[in-house]
């Protein structure tokens, strides 16, 4: 179990915002932080990792004190059992895929996990490839695998899929789910993408004005605050019918048929996708 409490003044374009956040993560749970840019989601991950100092902090991981500002305890980053997947992946450019993973392996650890992760992330054919020869999705899988090598107490994912297109995003969400169930990972995810949070997280925390305004199961948290009639998906259009000013579209999404309506304006935006 991980307990997190932090207070920090954030300096944003609109002035200062006091960040006051407190939450508990259960072992094996995946929680997501959702909110607008500049609300401090990434800062929370960085405070948890020890990369960014806060004014007041208490972090306890399975009873071990990582931070306690009152007692001036600050466990160095390298001593915290964390896996951090950065937005830019941060792969080591001079090391092959396999050596990126091997670098993360602690001394006297079972090296078998490297092959296991290469296999799980379908990277075994790319293990001797240098990072600059990988696609965005492949880089993300390497970054994810590397963060899991140490089997950390908590995996921190900082918008790990934001740089990818929707199709790749969907595939990679499945890799995260697979890794989570295989290693019983506790995950704190930062994401802007509601469908991603619904798919990956057990709990969503909506961050606004420096505080967690709402939290709960993603399906329960989001519809009340966000328009339920809109969604974003990757699908193939198989039929279009016009009735008045509204269009009815038949789609195939993830192998399943779906019918949606669209306005003239929305259809104009779909111009390139029309059959």
């Amino acid at each position: 179990m991980l307990r997190f409490t932090a207070h920090k003044i954030l300096y944003t374009a609109d002035g200062t915002v006091p960040l006051n956040v407190s939450f508990v993560l259960k072992k094996g749970e995946c929680a997501a932080l959702f909110g607008n840019s500049g609300e401090g989601k990434t800062t929370i991950l960085r405070i948890l990792a020890g990369l960014t100092p806060a004014d007041k902090t208490i972090i306890l991981a399975d009873g071990e004190v990582w931070d306690n500002s009152e007692n001036k305890i600050h466990l160095p980053v390298r001593k915290r059992s964390i896996g951090f997947v950065f937005q830019d992946f941060a792969l080591f450019p001079h090391l092959t895929v396999k050596r990126n993973l091997e670098y993360a392996l602690p001394k006297n650890s079972n090296a078998g996990i490297i092959d296991e992760l290469l296999e799980m992330m379908e990277l075994h054919l790319l293990q001797n490839t240098m990072p600059h020869n990988l696609s965005g999705g492949q880089k993300q899988r390497v970054a994810l695998a590397r963060a899991i090598v140490r089997q950390p107490k908590i995996l921190l994912l900082d918008e790990p899929l934001s740089a990818l297109d929707d199709e790749m995003r969907f595939k990679l969400q499945n890799y995260i789910l697979r890794a989570r169930s295989q290693y019983n990972l506790t995950i704190l995810l930062v994401s802007h993408n509601i469908s991603e949070i619904i798919k990956l997280a057990d709990r969503a925390m909506i961050l606004a004005k420096g505080k967690i305004q709402k939290e709960g199961k993603p399906v329960e948290v989001f519809p009340a605050d966000y328009p339920a009639g809109e969604c974003k998906l990757t699908a193939k259009i198989i039929d279009i019918k016009k009735s008045g000013t509204v269009y009815t579209l038949k789609l195939i999404a993830d192998g399943k048929p779906l019918t949606v309506t669209a306005t003239e304006e929305e259809m104009a935006g779909l111009k390139n996708a029309l059959p």
Binding site: A49, L51, P76, R78, F84, F92, Y103, R146, A147, V149
Partner: peptide, 8 residues
């Protein structure tokens, strides 16, 4: 940062 979060 990636390196130190990997325990180095």
């Amino acid at each position: 940062e990636a390196s130190i979060t990997l325990g180095k």
